[in-house]
């Protein structure tokens, strides 16, 4: 029976790692969906995506410190982040008409720098936390301990994803967004306001990022410069899942989170980031369209 217990321990340990990986992965997924939406609608890879996550957490902390209730602070944080996202598109990216792919990447990198610096100034450079939504009594799941906040993260991510799916497939504006993603000129010809759609894409991505940041801040804490690392991983997740496909973004995000947790748990905590990248590069080489991406053929 000792071997049985050994197996149960192993399984619990794996489950623990798996669930914590899924939790972090859900945040990666939120970031990845943000990338995907913006990329699909406008061919821009928005490296400031990570900053939206940071802003969600930091703004909430800030407003809590000013006496607002958790819900109100969170809601305001999302609103402000959405405003920032929309401004980014309106004032920077929309103005850069003839910019090359690289130039656009650099613009968003510049924006991410700017937001990071501004956050460091407006708030401070310390690490902060915000309270859990429903207490912090760990829940026992088959030997693994799970924080209730993790369940919040996973649950809300699911809800967000379903809401997004409904939006893209069942509402007129959502379909318009998919139209713009497929063929911008044709969309303009049928009367779709492309500029508005792009602003909307940025707004939604900012909202998703901010919500992800608020959800996970009680677990992983928040800090003015967590955007940079997140940007990388969210981007890697989006590519792993297939850039341009929201479901792929979710799959990629969760997969990356779990892979990272596995690497941290079984290989080395210090190199977990590297492990994720190795997997990513392998995936890119052998499955370039990502797990769920569509194959494309170059036309000459």
């Amino acid at each position: 029976m000792a071997i049985g217990r050994w197996w149960i321990n192993r399984m619990s340990q794996f489950l623990q790692i798996f669930l914590s990986g899924m939790t972090v992965g859900a945040v990666y997924a939120m970031v990845a969906i943000g990338y995907t939406l913006i990329y699909a609608a406008s061919d821009v890879v928005n490296f400031a995506q990570g900053e939206f996550v940071m802003l969600g957490g930091m703004l909430t902390w800030f407003m809590l410190g000013h006496g607002l209730s958790l819900f109100v602070a969170a809601a305001l944080a999302v609103v402000v982040t959405v405003a920032i996202g929309v401004l980014l598109q309106k004032l920077a990216i929309e103005q850069a008409r003839e910019a090359s792919v690289v130039a656009l990447i650099v613009i968003t990198l510049g924006a991410s720098n700017f937001l990071r610096g501004a956050a460091g100034l407006a708030f401070d450079k310390d690490t902060h936390s915000i309270p859990e939504f429903s207490g912090n009594e760990p829940i026992d799941v088959w030997g693994a301990t799970v924080l209730p906040q993790s369940l919040w993260v996973l649950g809300v991510t699911c809800v967000m994803f379903v809401a997004l799916w409904i939006f893209l497939n069942r509402t007129l504006i959502g379909k318009a967004m998919r139209a713009v993603a497929t063929n911008r000129s044709a969309s303009q010809l049928v009367g779709i306001d492309v500029k508005f759609i792009l602003l909307l894409a940025f707004g939604i991505s900012a909202a998703l990022g901010a919500i992800g940041g608020i959800l996970v801040a009680p677990i992983t804490l928040t800090r003015y410069n967590l955007g940079a690392a997140l940007a990388l991983k969210g981007f890697a997740a989006a590519i792993l899942g297939g850039l341009g496909n929201p479901l792929g973004a979710v799959v990629g995000g969760l997969a990356l989170g779990v892979l990272e947790a596995i690497a941290a748990g079984y290989v080395s905590s210090a190199y977990k980031d590297g492990a994720a990248f190795f997997v990513l590069i392998a995936a890119l080489l052998f499955m370039p369209s990502g797990l769920l991406g569509a194959k494309s053929v170059e036309r000459v």
Partner: peptide
């Protein structure tokens, strides 16, 4: 202001002088 400055310089130059 360093990060803010670099960010702004980069954004404005790339937008208007791509």
């Amino acid at each position: 202001f360093q990060e803010i400055a670099i960010g702004l310089v980069v954004m404005f130059s790339m937008t208007y002088l791509p």
